[in-house]
Design a protein around this nucleic acid. Structure first.
Lengths: 208, 208
DNA sequence: CCATACATGTAAAGGGTTACATGATTAA
DNA sequence: TTAATCATGTAACCCTTTACATGTATGG
């Protein structure tokens, strides 16, 4: 049996909270779930149309009211707002009951570190430094979200779910940071060892 | 610019350690790097042929010597052993110097938890229990690997790289386990709350 | 003799990323 | 007026998974 796409259900899940346009959808998804689920426009727009075809979402076209240069009443800009249908809600509920698929691990940084040789550790060291930075920022971001959440003006319909997911990211991030710090020390040692080996080799076969 | 496939380089990296057949390759990859990099046969065989076409690997056909029923000298089973070429080594070195790509996060369990509603927490609870089991096993496995590594008969050419990668997995696993334990408690509370809500609703509109 | 591991592949189908393309609105 | 943000999409290309298909060698 072929694995069903999860993108349409991620979209349905967001639409269930409130109707949205494709653009707003991506923003909402990135803001709320971006730390554990990423989608690009290239998936969202086709998926929305396919949801509409399947009768799981309804499309409503709106016109902008905004600043007019000319004398027109309505704006020229169109916005396609999608809302979930009862059939869509059923499909979403069914999907939510199925066990999540676990993706095979794909960590290119670790692969490169594993496959790399001991004489070229400068590049890996830079990558780890970069990861440390990214994860530190991510952790700060997630912590801010967790704090802001309970006091937010429009409290989320299922706050505890969200906190639970964010907590996972928080812990993963913490672990990654600790690993980066330890690994940077190891890489430093390896760098020094490589330098010593180079010096020794040079002494044996001196330049010019 | 389109992202280059990483699969051929993962293969080249393994071939650089020693020539291997497709089957042996998958095993070696799964054994050594399976915790952070997974490949399936469906990718490996086509990738090997493409590597041979590009001149990055050479294919050698071997015949089995094994148990013979009939009178034949050589076995009937063919084995295609691939070895890396100098051109392949260059390509691998170039690839290893490039910064690793970071995949957009895709954690279906977290997405389902986030999108789920507060009255159906039984399924998520089961998934988290399952994850706890899996991660506990994974951690045990990784710890055993880390311990066995330095004392291994054929010590790996770059042991520290491997340990570093495994250490990442170790820490991620630990974090996941802690999260599972905490989340199971939360889900229990939510389950009870849902049960209370159901009872209250039943009291208002009693059955029969 | 039977189960398990060894061994090599193909084909279909779908998922997903990335680059390209275009324009409107709004705040500074 | 300029930059940023809002907004909607297409197309190509590639990766990847999954199912299918077939048979050998070996140990118990």
């Amino acid at each position: 049996m072929r694995a069903a796409a999860t993108t349409p259900f991620a979209i349905l899940g967001m639409l269930r909270m409130a109707p949205k346009s494709g653009y707003a959808l991506r923003r909402a998804l990135a803001d709320a779930a971006g730390q554990f689920w990423g989608e690009s426009y290239g998936q969202i727009y086709p998926a929305l149309r396919s949801l509409a075809r399947r009768g799981w979402a309804r499309r409503r076209t709106e016109r902008s009211t905004g600043a007019r240069r000319d004398g027109e009443r309505a704006g020229r800009r169109v916005r396609h707002v999608y809302e979930i249908t009862p059939k869509g809600e059923e499909a979403l509920t069914r999907w939510l009951a199925e066990p999540p698929r676990i993706a095979p691990p794909r960590h290119e940084l670790l692969l490169k570190i594993y496959l790399g040789d001991r004489d070229t550790v400068d590049a890996p060291a830079a990558w780890v430094r970069r990861l440390l930075l990214d994860e530190t920022n991510r952790l700060r971001h997630v912590r801010r979200m967790k704090e802001a959440l309970p006091r937010g003006t429009h409290a989320h319909r299922s706050l505890r779910h969200w906190l639970m997911a964010l907590d996972f990211v928080d812990r993963q991030s913490e672990a990654a940071i600790a690993w980066c710090q330890r690994s940077m020390a190891t890489l430093d040692l390896m760098q020094e060892a490589a330098a010593r080996r180079r010096t020794a080799a040079q002494r044996r076969t001196p330049m010019e």
